[in-house]
Amino acid sequence: MSNEHEEKVLSIYVYEAPLRLWHWINALAITVLAVTGYLIGSPPEAMIGEASEHYRMGIIRFLHFGAGYVLLFGFIGRIYWAFAGNEHARELFVPKMYSILWWKELLTELKWYLFLTKEPHKYVGHNPLAQFAMFFIFLVGMVFMICTGFALYSEGAGAGTWSAVAFGWVRDIFPNSQTLHTWHHLGMWYLLTFVMAHVYVAIREDIMSRQSIVSTMISGHRLFKDDRP
């Protein structure tokens, strides 16, 4: 919410390099995870020949587990950056839901999406509506997928491995492994729905709002199209 219009601030450095890097690595990891995850649930047509000649399912699973590790360590790095980075790096984890102003802004933004206002406000970081979605759909979804994913991974890794120690407890929440698989699978669609809305909204905002969105995640700079409040 930039109010320093007097100084004609047209560009602010918002997203630092580690955060941008994480965003794109994470996007890539999620893409690989979704594709390979879908194929694990519904494997492609059978390969002809001896079993010793092929390792297709093995490769699909390897990619899935590899991307899962990338996602996990990326997420750990992202949490570190919430402490080390600037204030925008913390926004994802702690939306200001305790502030009345935050909820008011969320309403204004909601009106903007319902075509009820002519012009949106300006935001340096995420607007409250975006923060809301980032927290409740993306962050909660990510944590759910990491926990259920590594719980499933621990089934194959076996008792006593780090994943069984760290995530084995998740298996007890669900009645059985098959149900855990189903929930993990539904989680993929939950996150994919988020991705669809996220990409659409980012492009739309880039065109229609008063600040840059897409390029900000590349350069890190938030550009404002006007200097009005």
Partner: peptide, 29 residues
């Protein structure tokens, strides 16, 4: 392979539900 999920009609599994939600989202978008 995929378990049917109750409450979404007979023979709906995680994929049929997910694709339905995704299609709905795409239409809304």
């Amino acid at each position: 392979r995929l378990t049917h999920v109750e409450g979404f009609g007979i023979e709906s599994n995680a994929d049929t539900i997910g694709m339905g939600v995704a299609a709905g989202t795409a239409a809304a978008i």
